[in-house]
Design a protein around this nucleic acid. Structure first.
Lengths: 206, 206
DNA sequence: GTCTATAAATTGATAGAC
DNA sequence: GTCTATCAATTTATAGAC
């Protein structure tokens, strides 16, 4: 806790977040969460019925922070290429503040793929709108012809993967230099949108 | 086993691969591996001392299939842009045959980041060479100025992420239509290299 | 090499006192 | 609400017969 004791339930949620995000559901231990929260293990079951319920609270919260954001930025009515710049910058910033969330989410959706879709839709995701919006840019000739879904997945890939694969890339490309990799990630905020815009901008158009 | 009984050790490795890749180390159970291999649980410990040792055999094998390949393609002496085409096509094909390996590797390197680096180097990865090679292309004006490491990470992101995030993307963008998503992944073999080449090709140059 | 039986340790969950 | 003590089930690993 950064703040001064916000009550037991908050302490539990904070501790559970830390442990689940680091270890995943299968690797997490209720005892470790209790220790982290500086309370007794039995109290976890008093506030949340089971490990599964406690996990769901944490997972839903993580999804809520990372999924709607994707669709919000693109729903604004700025210039499309500008929207990409803003999205990439803000999304990488968001992940920089919670660098373990991507691998946590990827891990858990693969462990239990069924529950995902409804959760996402309920959190306000509107993939159809986003696709139409991209298609409109293609039709008007502002960007080169591309399947909107491919572009969408490309954008997400470029933002998210470097965090999910961090140990690998940091180890191989940066001799495990944490600070250098941090800089590398920060500089991606500009590099990635440059890369995407170069890829799709239609130079014939004016 | 697709082939007719290759001996106990092979049966174990095949079964362990299946279970570990699907469930991860923490989620895997020795009993399930034994069932899958149609042998007794004690026999697992006879052939491999412990769950940890058995896991390492599987993990090393997975790394061996997916890491060296990255550097091999780029070491050939074809035209650089052609190399990107070939790499993207072949690497996506490789993952299509083992679609769960990416999330498996990402999950396990995050669970135990330390052991990674040495393993990769020992498998013949040569990141320095690849960086120099990209830098040469920049210097000669064939591709636009870019940090070689950024380009490298971009290529990997675009190839790997759509598999790691499959349940999410397939669920949201494809209403969970498995066949459609399969087609989408296959068409990425062409789409991704087009995207990358558009992004980096220097049109001023000739 | 392969099996049955079982040990030994871990872990999620509950009972019951305060 | 919070704690101690403990249950019950699971799970890795080993002993020992064949």
């Amino acid at each position: 806790m950064t703040e001064i004791d916000k009550g037991t339930e908050s302490k539990i949620l904070y501790a559970a977040h830390k442990v689940f995000v680091n270890k995943g559901f299968d690797g997490a231990r209720m005892q470790e969460i209790a220790n982290e929260a500086e309370i007794n293990k039995a109290l976890l079951h008093y506030y949340f019925r089971s490990k599964e319920k406690l996990f769901e609270a944490i997972f839903e919260d993580a999804m809520g922070k990372f999924v709607p954001k994707i669709f919000e930025t693109f729903a604004s009515d700025t210039d499309f290429l500008k929207k990409i710049e803003i999205f990439v910058e803000e999304y990488i910033d968001l992940i920089l503040e919670n660098p373990l969330i991507p691998i946590f989410i990827l891990q858990e959706i693969n462990r239990n793929p069924e529950r995902i879709v409804n959760m996402i839709i309920s959190k306000g995701a509107n993939p159809q709108l986003l696709q139409l919006l991209i298609q409109k840019e293609v039709d008007s000739g502002i960007i080169k012809p591309i399947d909107p879904r491919q572009l969408f997945v490309n954008i997400l890939s470029l933002c998210i993967f470097p965090f999910a694969g961090r140990p690998l890339i940091q180890g191989v490309l940066f001799q495990n230099n944490k600070e250098e990799y941090e800089k590398f990630l920060v500089s991606r905020k500009k590099e990635v949108s440059k890369f995407i815009i170069n890829a799709i901008k239609n130079n014939d158009h004016e």
